[in-house]
Design a protein around this nucleic acid. Structure first.
Length: 428
DNA sequence: ATCACGGTTTGCA
DNA sequence: CTAACGTGCAAACCGTGAT
């Protein structure tokens, strides 16, 4: 029997979140920008119609924005994350088998649910989410994650579906009609590099790919592409992941709000990013064995000389201690810093990550027994969780941070911050 | 000739 | 007025030294 896997995906998620709390944004072209107010990462239907492309740099469409009164918002991740939590916990009530795939998407396993009424059930879910959170969602259903993703795409693009496209309730003929009509690049996992390669071997539509024999596939194609082909043929290769796998690599990087020249500012930013990365590390109960830091000038600026450098610092002992990690990374920064450049971005990558339960101390380590995560870090994390993110910071991060990213038009954190809520009420 | 390993690049969301 | 273009992760790739 075919599985019934659903993908629930919010429409224009970030824009929709902004609209829930600011009705003035409704029925108008709205764009939400990436960090540092750099590129368009979410667009309302009106903004899409005006030709704003996904990922388009803000300065490139500013004339269009002025001409059509497009409203641009800085991204407000505190708000989006909270709205996401609400949606996900509601959806969990509809199926115990849930995989939260991204901030606005989740898979639900409906296998064995209401054989004939599943489409209506899904439509009910859409209405319920809309009513409970104010957010519009679409649902795609298919026999695999790949097909569910695709069905969701079809539901979004074709209003006749009223938010739900269910491949399992379609005739084979009708399903193939859709697969034939859609280009191969729209499939989950097939992007702008792989699709021209597939076209070279005569695969244009999704239907073309579905009918390839994966066993005869050229060596130049990866194993995961074969899985995708099976998935198009109703054979599950990507199961729902019950628990999120621990990260093998943890990154924190940001572009600066202004180009910076001082070593001090670079130090502060690196210290901040190490802090964030180490928080993520502790949250998944891991230690890191290696820390990589990098700094670079703008890759887009052709007028001035550019510089980028990075350094990998293997740690003598695996750790999750922010202070230790900052010490090592600032030592590394001194090695790669070059005076006289205007830096645009810095970042930190933790790798060689191990579970803190598998921690193996150095043979010659002075510390005795198994090293536990320090109580200092535990206190730091608890206080910041309980009382607000920036209650305790490491002094090396700096207090004023003149280099911090641009967020010139950010909405209040309506659902997660009392002070912002007061500000919001005064605006009305 | 083959393997394991690390560092780097590529690709995707 | 100016200048202004994201982030995170894993897979794939590739050179190296060891066997």
């Amino acid at each position: 029997m075919n599985r019934s896997i659903a993908l629930v995906d919010c429409n224009n998620f970030y824009v929709s979140c902004e609209r829930v709390f600011n009705p003035k944004l409704r029925n108008k072209p709205v764009v939400v920008l990436s960090n540092n107010d750099g590129c368009a990462v979410a667009r309302s239907e009106e903004a899409k119609a005006l030709g704003i492309r996904m990922g388009e740099p803000c300065f490139q469409f500013k004339h269009l924005a002025r001409k059509h009164n497009i409203i641009t918002c800085s991204s407000n991740y505190a708000l989006y994350a909270d709205m996401s939590d609400r949606i996900m916990s509601i959806l969990f009530k509809f199926s115990p088998s849930q995989e939260i795939y991204s901030i606005d998407e989740c898979f639900l396993d409906f296998t064995g649910f209401r054989k004939n009424g599943l489409t209506a059930y899904a439509q009910e879910i859409c209405r319920y989410i809309q009513q409970q959170t104010g957010l519009p969602v679409c649902i795609g259903i298919g026999a695999s994650k790949t097909l569910a993703k695709l069905a969701n795409y079809i539901a979004k693009k074709n209003l006749v579906f009223q938010g739900v496209c269910n491949f399992n309730a379609m005739s084979i003929r009708e399903q193939n009609k859709w697969l034939h009509r859609i280009k191969v690049g729209k499939i989950w996992g097939i992007g702008k590099k792989l699709s021209p390669k597939l076209q070279q071997i005569g695969v244009y539509s999704i239907n073309d790919l579905k009918n390839i024999n994966p066993r005869r596939l050229d060596l130049q194609f990866s194993a995961s592409l074969k899985k995708t082909i099976y998935e198009l043929n109703n054979i599950v290769c990507f199961e729902l992941e019950g628990t999120t796998a621990k990260k093998k690599q943890i990154t924190c990087s940001r572009s600066f709000g202004v180009l910076i020249t001082s070593f001090k500012s670079l130090e502060q930013s690196i210290a901040l990013y190490v802090s964030r990365a180490a928080e993520k590390l502790r949250r998944q109960n891991s230690y890191t064995g290696s820390i990589h830091i990098y700094i670079c000038t703008s890759p887009f600026n052709k007028k001035e000389s550019c510089y980028e450098n990075s350094i990998n610092i293997p740690l003598p002992e695996q750790t999750d201690d922010t202070l230790t990690l900052i010490q090592f990374s600032l030592f590394g920064l001194r090695k790669i810093y070059q005076n006289g450049y205007r830096y645009q971005k810095a970042g930190v990558i933790l790798s060689k990550i191990v579970s803190n339960k598998k921690y193996q101390p150095d043979l010659f380590s002075k510390k005795k027994g198994r090293k536990k995560s320090s109580s200092l870090m535990a206190a730091l994390d608890q206080i910041n969780t309980l009382m607000g993110k920036k209650i305790l910071i490491i002094a090396a991060e700096g207090i004023t941070q003149p280099w911090k990213m641009r967020q010139n038009n950010m909405s209040p954190r309506y659902t997660t911050n009392w002070n912002d809520l007061i500000v919001a009420s005064q605006l009305i």
